[in-house]
Design a protein around this nucleic acid. Sequence first.
DNA 1: ATCTCTGCAAATGTTTTGCATCAGC
DNA 2: GCTGATGCAAAACATTTGCAGAGAT
Lengths: 124, 124
Amino acid sequence: MERNTVQRRAIHQVIEDAGRPLGPPEIYEMARQAVPGMGIATVYRTIKRMLDEKWLSPVELPGEAPRYELAGKEHHHHFRCNNCNRVFDLNGCPNAFQSIMPNGFSLEGHELYLFGRCTDCVAA
Amino acid sequence: MERNTVQRRAIHQVIEDAGRPLGPPEIYEMARQAVPGMGIATVYRTIKRMLDEKWLSPVELPGEAPRYELAGKEHHHHFRCNNCNRVFDLNGCPNAFQSIMPNGFSLEGHELYLFGRCTDCVAA
DNA sequence: ATCTCTGCAAATGTTTTGCATCAGC
DNA sequence: GCTGATGCAAAACATTTGCAGAGAT
């Protein structure tokens, strides 16, 4: 049976409060402020368990270390600002992928990432 | 000045012959057949240099180790078969991404990956 | 009291780097 | 013969795992 520990609570809290996808080192640093003695292994183990339990879903930008966000949102994609590097959720999905599928192939899923400048950085 | 070594030639040859994106371990194994004594470090160093020289471009599927293919093709995306795990080039691009961009954000680039079954695996 | 979770440290896997030597020019 | 490139081994990172002890139930 699953136990409700301070570490687990701290990690869940951090991800919830962030409102954007976070990577293990970020989660570690932030959760550490609430639970000073915590080890990095606990962060990895907890993330893995939360993924199994579908509390978290991974956000894996090409060429970057994985980040994680709370699961349960509906299908969406992500935008990363080339200037400030923050990752934002995008609502909706352009369902126009069948057009580039080769004949005889079947389409089962897709990943889409957009890059550019967020409102804060579009001026800078 | 840059030198034309057997290792570099072997690596370039392997990637050219493959016709699909390869990862460093694959490149190492295959190039090793042409140049038995070669070390893995040379593969990494050579890939890095070829990226700088724009001979190669990276293919970074979310959650997977990076692969590399010859650069210079025109804009395209990739499809990975969920069954045999091979990666294929897709021609064309559904230019319909502006529709999900938030107001005030500017779009500068995108990455798209499709998943499913290739012709060979659609029956299996 | 039980049994899972944790922290630590060691192990793993991948990519990078230092350095003496080798080889392209 | 210079000087960049290579092979080896060690180092650097990120992530995983074994284990004994702490803590939740």
